[in-house]
Design a protein around this nucleic acid. Sequence first.
DNA 1: AATGCTATTAATAATGATTATCGATACTGA
DNA 2: TCAGTATCGATAATCATTATTAATAGCATT
Lengths: 128, 128
Amino acid sequence: MQRITEQRRVLLEELQATKRHPTADELYETVRCRLPNISLGTVYRNLDLLVRSGSIRKLDKAGGQARYDADLSEHLHVRCLHCGAIADLPDDGALKLEIPLPVIPSYAITRYRLEFEGTCPGCSAGTT
Amino acid sequence: MQRITEQRRVLLEELQATKRHPTADELYETVRCRLPNISLGTVYRNLDLLVRSGSIRKLDKAGGQARYDADLSEHLHVRCLHCGAIADLPDDGALKLEIPLPVIPSYAITRYRLEFEGTCPGCSAGTT
DNA sequence: AATGCTATTAATAATGATTATCGATACTGA
DNA sequence: TCAGTATCGATAATCATTATTAATAGCATT
Ligand SMILES: [Mn+2]
Ligand SMILES: [Mn+2]
Ligand SMILES: [Zn+2]
Ligand SMILES: [Zn+2]
């Protein structure tokens, strides 16, 4: 009962084709080249469906637009504080983080959120 | 030129008097007992001023209300996925996390966000 | 005390990302 | 074929937060 519509398929394809962690807005612009009549609501609806079915990840952020990632492999992100762009951290080398879940009486801690922040190459070039 | 208004002082006092990490809304209700005419905009404005002056911390969250903390000591938080409540992690014992900032060429990584998630005692009691 | 200056306020409107609604359309399977 | 329903595009609504604005209050100088 979960159809594979053109809109959903193209959306997933375009997200899988980029390493840029685009926002719903950016994805909307991209997808419009192939589906000129798609509406922004459809983009949001299908991104939500894809997240819920486990096909993509949502990288949300207070006070800004969420970004989406079709790379389901375990990896961490760094977010630029100036432009909001997200980049993958290479997990080669020193970054083998093992974060143990804390144990608190009667509190069931199931997971954590970890994200790095800084200034991306583009924005540090502008701030010369 | 930064006056210490009654509204600002009471707001800070009430936040310092609780361990509950209240939202702007909750703080608004609390403060109205002492300042019945305060407006929600004033609460937001002064919380923002207090954050910017380093007197309190803001714990924001995508798709929900931000919460505020007057405890400036270094400590971590756990957020309940059901009710949104935030609790402090006791930093005694095993939780001496040392997270090294990753080094990426031309990317200036300055800090990280780490937050745990789970189910608080109240919500796990309800889900019996 | 009177004047001028500016920070702040309460009330209210606006913003912006996301979600909900709805009538129309397109699949799907009996 | 045809009922049932998933999805669509368009558009309105939501909701936390921020901006605007006219009025007021604090402070300094005359
Ligand atoms: Mn990624
Ligand atoms: Mn705390
Ligand atoms: Zn940047
Ligand atoms: Zn809870």
